[in-house]
Design a protein around this nucleic acid. Structure first.
Lengths: 109, 109
DNA sequence: GCGACTGTACGCAAACTATCGTACAGTTGA
DNA sequence: TCAACTGTACGATAGTTTGCGTACAGTCGC
């Protein structure tokens, strides 16, 4: 169990963030985090195996999309909203809004 | 030489667009298009082989990021700004602004 | 210490992506 | 019709990503 490394704000890369977001599992995680939830690794998509989930958490963490802090035996994740907004103003909001609008149109059929 | 197919506005998918944008070559193309240029396939990055370029143009076209129209023997590409703005408000602007800010900070050192 | 719990590390296989060379198709102007 | 030009189709390959099983490490409560 290594220490949880994060890029700092200045190290965030647009391409890395876009890459992290261009995946349905990770988009779903971001959406949940954006709802204000602080998620542990096991909290999202209980049907996907832990080892697969770990991979996605890592991609999100290493790209700088979220922050992970160890809290006892769980790892609590939160969106790095401030950092993302500072480096890429409007990007996160646009992605979240787009997800919301996509799920709306899905529900309409 | 097949006909150039495009998804229509309602078919645009966030994940597909993010995926198309999560690549340095394609980001560069989008940046150039956003500057108002209308580009043909050979106009960007002359050092990359035509067959590689074709691949990237296709990804951008099929994800709905740009529109390609045949004009004599060249294919002219333009950003689908209106469609992107309609489906994913703020997304394209945020990405373009982020690119601009990244190239600014690169120039500073 | 021990067992339950949470998540990682490692390694593997399948699927996907990027890059490229070669051959070729459509358009244009001579 | 012919050659030049522009871009595609196809196929190969290397590298990457995804998904997963298994083994294990750190923390907690008892």
């Amino acid at each position: 169990m290594r220490t949880l490394t994060h890029p700092d704000r200045a190290q965030l890369r647009l391409e890395g963030v876009l890459d992290a977001l261009a995946n349905p599992v990770r988009l779903r995680i971001v959406q949940r985090l954006a709802e204000g939830e602080e998620l542990t690794c096991g909290t999202v998509l209980p049907d996907i195996p832990a080892s697969s989930a770990t991979h996605h958490w890592r991609v999100l963490r290493e790209s700088g999309v979220l922050f992970a802090r160890r809290q006892g035996r769980v790892i609590v994740h939160s969106l790095r909203r401030d950092d993302l907004d500072a480096r890429f103003p409007g990007l996160l909001d646009a992605v979240l809004a787009a997800m919301a609008s996509e799920s709306r149109s899905r529900n309409l059929g």
